[in-house]
Nucleic acid binder design. Structure first.
Lengths: 116, 116
DNA sequence: ACATTATTTAATCATTAAGTTATATATAGC
DNA sequence: GCTATATATAACTTAATGATTAAATAATGT
């Protein structure tokens, strides 16, 4: 699995966000995601470990997880190409986003000029 | 499907990259991804359309695709939180990435200090 | 109207992902 | 050594993804 797939899962993004604040034990992380069972969280943590986005160290019976942000840079590098599109007028862009967020599937297809 | 899942697929990232250069017809895009069949590319384009990352307009029998970068801003907003981690020393960070890219699964688990 | 070109949609199949419960592992404290 | 606690792994099920081939749709040129 690669970084892009790893962060596609919202629970895993949430886990990373929590670890960006501070290190936490697996138990704390599991408790922070009440929509999942403990083994479920553990499996997401395993994915994050395997992809190199987090690291864990054993402390007594607990495992302390910490963020390993290096590989997020791949994402940064990819998105940087598109930064030109907002870059300048960030504010109006964010507003545009907020307005346009409703109409998803526009299927514009405004048809050519053949029969009119 | 959301933006994060949409860009998790490498062919779809490639399609966006191609459209970042310039508008292209569906045929040109299909030809640019020789590892996929034409219907396969068409389906990826459909995903990108539905998620709002591209738009298509009919021109004669061809469909011209163009990038619709707005929704990529969601990704930008998420990653921006992590930008603090490289931000300053970008160069050394990229090098670190290059070096560390081999050892993926570190499973550090350096075990506690109980039996030593 | 017919053949051709460009593209999408449908049907199908294999693979992968994610969730669940039950179980295993490992450490701590008595 | 036994029990409790913390966490991971296994086994299993279900759902989603992506690829393929075949067929449908739409516009063009004759």
């Amino acid at each position: 699995m690669d970084v892009f797939v790893a962060i596609a899962e919202p629970n895993r993004r949430r886990l990373l966000d929590l670890l960006a604040e501070r290190d936490r034990t697996a138990g704390e992380l599991a408790a922070a995601l009440p929509s999942l069972t403990q083994p479920g969280v553990s499996r997401h943590l395993k994915v994050l470990r395997e992809v190199g986005l987090v690291r864990s160290t054993v402390k007594a019976q607990t495992r302390i997880y910490s963020l390993q942000p290096e590989r997020l840079f791949e994402l940064e590098r990819w998105i940087s190409r598109y930064r030109q599109y907002w870059g300048q007028h960030l504010d109006s862009f964010e507003e545009h986003l907020r307005n346009g967020t409703a109409r998803q599937n526009q299927e514009s297809e405004m048809s050519g000029n053949s029969h009119e």
